[in-house]
Amino acid sequence: MQDADRRDFLRLAGLAGVAFTAGLFPDRKAAAQGSDFHFVQFSDTHWGYSGPANPDAEHTLEKAVATVNGLANKPDFIVFTGDLTHTTDDPKVRRERMKRFREIVSALNVKDVRFMPGEHDASLDKGEAYKEFFGATNYTFDHKGVHFIVLDNVSDPAAKLGDEQLAWLAADLKQRKPDDRIVVLTHRPLFDLKPDWDWTTADGAKAIDLLMPYQNVVVLYGHIHQENHHMTGHIAHHAAKSLIFPLPAPGSQPKRTPLPYDAAMPGLGTRDVTVAQKVTLVELPVTKG
């Protein structure tokens, strides 16, 4: 998609915000494999959270659903990159939160919705409740010539992918061609973003090593409750905003405590992802009251 075309596309899609064009899918031959499309990423909705970091917590997710439902150009599908619910020690309450979360997002007018867990959903019971409601924690799917890989780096409470999942990833990648377009969806950063804030995946470097031979790879993740853009070699990693409270930029304050609440919610939102020969990200603020 040329720049002018992309601007038209964004206008027709009814998307506000600043577009971030990632230098991805650099191999132009790969673009011929399928047609352009867009999807929306939700992340870190933390349904069930109650606290001063977001006094509007009971309504923020519903507002985001309304915002996405109002897009002029419906996305092909929607992904939730983890922490659907806020953690609780009580297995019954955990399931109640998942049930209510599922009810709220069932109002999305796009019915192809892909989920994955965050540590708040899955780390206390190794994903047991999550699987009851949302199915497998790691899987793949294909859409218009792009291969999506969902990785689970949270069901192990020590934030590991684990050898079994890494072997599964290696086996999946063996079926790909070097210039295939690949989007990895996961919760925690696969690279060491801020190790002393635990913004890492213990064995994430092994996954990156497996992905490195492929020329067109992008990783979309959540966990850190803010935009972040980082390259490991030619692989780009993009963190998304949350829908509960923003966290500080890595190392910008002594501790990773939530930023003060702002009723305008400038630090919250969802993200539209356009996949063409490049990936274009457009942040969607929470706007529907």
Binding site: H86, T87, D89, S123, L124, P157, A158, D196, D198
Partner: peptide
């Protein structure tokens, strides 16, 4: 000054265990 912290998720408050 060097931070240490719990890196095995242990519940609502885990992020403050350091």
């Amino acid at each position: 000054s060097f931070a240490f912290f719990c890196d095995v998720f242990c519940g609502d408050g885990h992020e403050d265990m350091d």
